[in-house]
Design a binder for these strands. Structure first.
Lengths: 261, 261
DNA sequence: CGCATAGTTGAAAGTTTTCAAAAGAGGTGG
DNA sequence: CCACCTCTTTTGAAAACTTTCAACTATGCG
């Protein structure tokens, strides 16, 4: 709820306009440039064709609601481009962002009838949508795919535990340092190659509100902490919502709970 | 690290003494009283025999280390009795308990070579241990078991997200109220039948230190908050590390972020 | 060019933590 | 069976980190 445009309902409105029919191009998955970094890497050529048939590709603008808390859990998504935020809210509006899903990450898994979380695009997002029954079929037909999903969810759980440590036990300073390093890693991953120019850059497409809601802080504290890092020459601003990390080592020390200035 | 006895290394010492050979009694799983509430519910009779063959049953005293952060991830566990705490630590000793695994819950899943978390018994714990290769075999041989595990991990992830909301956005008061209600639900689940006498009782076998490390608070704040609830007659002490919840409705209101006293 | 939104900075307020000490609980041994 | 010791829990007061409230600056889009 931070973008200027009012969040459209779901893929039914904004997304479908750009949607490619699931059975339109069987090659879609075969030529997908991030498939090696996603669940789809578990598939052979036949499996990739099945994936293409089972899914629709959507292209969504910033601030679009993908999944609404409490709504029927009808679909599963694989992010192929951009960044999605996942969150949970309290009745009075307090919100916790539980994670950012960058390209190659999945979202929307649920054993309950309804989603227990919301999801919204941060920037321009491309994703593949699988309806529940189609996902179930894929899991049954392709054991390697199911095994890969199990591994992916297991990794997400480990990530969540790491975030719990951050939320429950780290100081504001430590939280922000951790966040910046995580964003640097995420950027390196989505860029694939760790090119010279990309090195030590962190992609931060989300607003201060989102960062605050992710770290369990207020926007003011986030802003102050980032300013302090900048003053200490630990980081510097870069073009296009990016931050250059000038001292990875120091930030690592801070993030892990040791004091250095 | 709350028990009086120094924590023994692992099953190798304390546990094995009480261990039952995996292939000792094929009936073990068949007669397990909590199997309907665990992963094992996905198994037919043949599968249950395979489970019994693949696992060892351990009986561990309070304060025993089950899994050590950073050690090779060699085994997977299913808790059949008692309560286990899972946690992550910072170098300076700060600790976050990421969850309590009661009877029927699993722990020890990892895609990495080493565990990214620690696990320790809270009280007397019974659990079934599966070595990695044996678990893999089970997953491959019994698709329903794998599907059930996927669902269980998915549920754990949803739980983790709920806990992130608590850690990042709830007040001390709201955190403790949520915790007490969760413990009441856990008690009802492990007791199976929601008998009259059991109603509104919460089982709290863990120390204040553990509660504090779970809620991202200090022991003093936890103690003060519980005392305040007691003074307000929202709760009352009961025998055997139990707490009687006198006003579930009020506690629910508080836990969900509304103000009531 | 100007309004609107996002981000920054300052000062006061507040919730939680830290420091300290007393009270309670559990276990051991005389 | 009670005394005693240790560990846990409770309670109080001061300190601290983060939040809240407020105002100002920067950035972006029509």
């Amino acid at each position: 709820m931070t973008s200027s445009s009012p969040p459209p309902a779901l893929a039914h409105s904004a997304g479908v306009a750009h949607a490619h029919k699931g059975d339109g191009d069987v090659l879609r998955c075969l030529v997908c440039d991030i498939r090696n970094r996603s669940l789809c890497s578990s598939m052979d050529e036949e499996g990739l064709a099945a994936l293409a048939h089972s899914s629709r590709q959507l292209q969504l603008p910033p601030g679009t609601t993908i999944v609404e808390e409490g709504e029927p859990a009808l679909a599963f998504f694989n992010v192929t481009g951009g960044t999605v935020k996942l969150f949970k809210s309290l009745p009075d509006g307090r919100r916790q962002i539980t994670g950012f899903a960058d390209a190659g990450q999945f979202l929307g898994l649920s054993t309950a009838q309804t989603y227990s979380f919301g999801a919204e695009t941060v920037d321009n997002v491309r994703l593949c949508r699988f309806l529940r029954p189609q996902l179930e079929t894929l899991l049954s037909d392709y054991p390697t795919f199911e095994r890969r999903l199990l591994a992916a969810v297991t990794d997400k759980l480990a990530e969540a535990q790491e975030q719990m440590l951050l939320l429950g036990r780290k100081t504001a300073r430590e939280k922000v340092a951790t966040f910046l390093l995580d964003r640097m890693r995420a950027y390196h991953l989505t860029m694939g190659h760790t090119r010279q120019e990309v090195e030590n850059l962190a992609s931060v497409p989300m607003t201060r509100v989102d960062i605050a809601d992710y770290l369990g802080l207020t926007i003011e504290t986030v802003s102050r902490t980032i300013s302090a890092f900048r003053r200490s020459h630990l980081i510097a601003s870069a073009e296009n919502h990016r931050i250059r990390i000038l001292s990875v080592a120091t930030l690592l020390t801070i993030a892990s709970g040791q004091k250095p200035d």
